[in-house]
C-alpha cells in the first residue's frame, strides 16, 4: 500500500442545521480497494460527492490525489465517479456514450470501452434507457474506467442489481484493479460483497467516521472475548466496541490497544470483518440514541 490518495481532516457537511457528515477523518492508501460502509443516511454519498468535487464541504479539508476537490479539468481528469442512480443519458446509446467520453476526456481509452462492452455482449446501438439495470451499470463502469482514472469512487453501484449482475459487476471491478494503478472507494451496505473485493474499510455511521483502516489490521486488532459475567470491565488493554451479557457470561467485541494483550480470564475468538463492522455501526446507533 502506498501513500494516501485520500486524506480528510474534520470534513463536514451541513444541510440547514443537520450535519450529514461531521468531523470525518479518513485516509485511503494508494492501490487499495476501500469499502465505505454504513447504514442508510450515514453520509456515504455526501462524503463521496465532496471528494469528487460535486458538493462543497461545510467544514474541514479534504485532499484527493494531492489536490483540493474542484470543478476543474486538472482535478477531474484523474478521478472516476459512479453516482448511486447510475446516471446515463437515456436517449443516447452506448456508442454515443463512448464518443461522449472521448470528447470530454483527454486520456479516454475508446478501444478499451468498446472491447469491454463487446465482451459483455452489451449492444452499442440501443438507447441505454432500454438496457437492463446490470447492463447500464456495466456501461457506466466501463465509461468511468475508460477515463483511466487514478481513483475511482463508486456510490452503491451494485445496490440495484440482481445477484448475477452484482457478481459480474464486482468481477469487472476486481479485474480493473488487478490491472494496476487504480485506487477504489466503493460504498455499500452489502457487507458480503465488499468483503470479496476490498482490502480497506471505512465505517461511517451517524455522520461520523467510526473506523478507517486496512482490513488485515482491523482483523488483527479486534477480538471477540467471552468470559464470566462481569459488571465492570476495566478497559486498560482494549476499548469495548460492543458488549452483550447473559446471566452468566459476557461477550465483548474489543479493539486491542497498541501492543496490548488480551488479559487472562477471557476466551479469545477471531471475529470476522462483518461482525466488526456491525459492532461499530451498533455502537454509533447507541451513541446517537443516548
Amino acid at each position: 500500500m502506498g501513500a494516501a490518495v485520500i486524506q480528510t481532516k474534520g470534513l463536514g457537511k451541513r444541510y440547514g442545521s443537520f450535519w450529514a457528515l461531521e468531523n470525518c477523518n479518513i485516509s485511503v492508501p494508494a492501490g487499495s480497494v476501500s469499502a465505505l460502509v454504513g447504514p442508510n443516511g450515514a453520509g456515504k454519498s455526501t462524503l463521496l460527492k465532496i471528494l469528487v468535487g460535486l458538493n462543497r464541504a461545510s467544514a474541514g479539508q479534504g485532499e484527493v490525489l494531492g489536490k483540493a476537490p474542484a470543478q476543474e479539468e486538472s482535478f477531474l481528469s484523474d478521478i472516476g465517479y459512479l453516482a448511486q442512480e447510475i446516471p446515463l443519458y437515456k436517449n443516447l446509446n452506448a456508442a454515443d456514450h463512448i464518443k461522449m467520453g472521448a470528447h470530454l476526456n483527454k486520456r479516454f481509452d475508446k478501444e478499451f470501452m468498446q472491447k469491454r462492452l463487446k465482451d459483455l455482449q452489451i449492444p452499442l446501438d440501443r438507447p441505454v434507457g432500454k438496457l437492463s439495470g446490470g447492463q447500464r451499470a456495466q456501461v457506466a463502469l466501463a465509461l468511468a474506467l475508460a477515463k483511466k482514472p487514478k481513483l475511482l469512487l463508486l456510490d452503491e453501484p451494485v445496490a440495484a442489481l440482481d445477484p448475477l449482475a452484482r457478481h459480474d459487476f464486482l468481477s469487472s471491478l476486481a479485474q480493473a484493479v488487478a490491472d494496476g494503478g487504480l485506487t477504489v472507494v466503493m460504498s455499500s451496505h452489502l457487507l458480503a460483497d465488499l468483503e470479496r473485493v476490498s482490502d480497506h474499510v471505512i465505517v461511517l455511521a451517524a455522520g461520523k467516521t467510526q473506523l478507517c483502516d486496512e482490513i488485515e489490521t482491523v482483523l488483527n486488532e479486534h477480538k471477540l472475548l467471552v468470559g464470566p459475567r462481569q459488571n465492570k470491565i476495566p478497559e486498560d488493554d482494549f476499548a469495548i466496541i460492543h458488549e452483550t451479557h447473559t446471566i452468566r457470561q459476557s461477550t465483548l467485541l474489543v479493539h486491542l490497544k497498541k501492543g496490548a494483550k488480551v488479559p487472562n480470564g477471557w476466551q479469545q475468538h477471531e471475529p470476522n470483518i462483518e461482525e466488526i463492522i456491525l459492532a461499530y455501526m451498533g455502537q454509533a446507533k447507541e451513541g446517537g440514541e443516548k
Binding site: 460527492k49 469528487v52 468535487g53 460535486l54 470543478q71 476543474e72 479539468e73 477531474l76 481528469s77 478521478i79 472516476g80 465517479y81 453516482a83 442512480e85 446516471p87 446515463l88 443519458y89 437515456k90 461522449m100 467520453g101 470530454l104 476526456n105 483527454k106 486520456r107 457506466a140 477515463k147
Partner: peptide, 17 residues
C-alpha cells in the same frame, strides 16, 4: 432530475466550460 449532471461534471471538463 435524471442525475446526468453528476455524470457530466465528473468528466474532465470544468463545470464552467
Amino acid at each position: 432530475g435524471e442525475g446526468t449532471n453528476s455524470l457530466a461534471w465528473t468528466q474532465s471538463v470544468s463545470r464552467r466550460k
